[in-house]
Amino acid sequence: MPPTPVEDAVERPRHRWIVELLLVVVLVHSVALALWLAPSSPIRDAVGEGRLASYVDPYFQQGRDVVGIGTQQVDESFSVRAYVAPDAGGKGAATEWVDVTRDDNRANRHELAPERAHLIARRLATNLNLAMFNLSEAQRRVVRGLTADDLPSTVRPTLEGAGGRPEAVRFFQAYDQMATQFASLYAEARWGEGGRIVQVQFRVGRRTVPSYADRATTSLDDVAFRDFSFGWRRAFRGSLDARDTFDSYVKK
């Protein structure tokens, strides 16, 4: 005989609502995630991208690329050079450009599990290129004119005054600072023994993989990088530990 509703209820735990509530929370979370990941639609627009981002971004940070692999068509490079002043005094000189990404690619060859440290230069190049794309033409002109004497606090109002979005300026300045510090520590490890690193300069290159249709006639090696050189930046010293770490890494 099937149980009556009363008997049936008695057999189940009294506080099962806790689990039911958790399930509802998970389902609402999944719907929010689905909307976040879905292509643009009236439902997604009704909820609002900002509202979805404020829920997903801080902790869940789920994108459309967490599984598998995507298409990448752009090769990028990050090169560094420094202005070195001799310890004994006298006029300093600029070093040759060093393509850090090329060294990293060489280190990653035949590595099934490449070290993340060898991705740094490539990621800096990608983000600097992205930062430049986000800026307006007028802002890019400002960036081209920046020198080692320009402080970030004075650069920001100048860039914001040149139009464009404030987030784009913040993004550019963050990556400009990161690239400057990375280039400085790299330069110190590479050329520091020859004198004092006074200023550093970095440049990013960008080239697109030839299309599949042209594969018989053109390879990526046939395509030259289109370089963008950022101005000289005042060298960042960093802590002794940071310099030691770069020293052992660069000279490895």
């Binding site: 440290a117 600072q177 990161m178 520590l185 802590s239 530990d241 770490t245």
Partner: peptide
């Protein structure tokens, strides 16, 4: 082997991120 460079003192430059 490269942990200091990746996430240690060598990653001081990544502070803004």
């Amino acid at each position: 082997s490269t942990r200091d460079m990746w996430v240690g003192q060598g990653s001081v430059w990544a502070e803004p991120a």
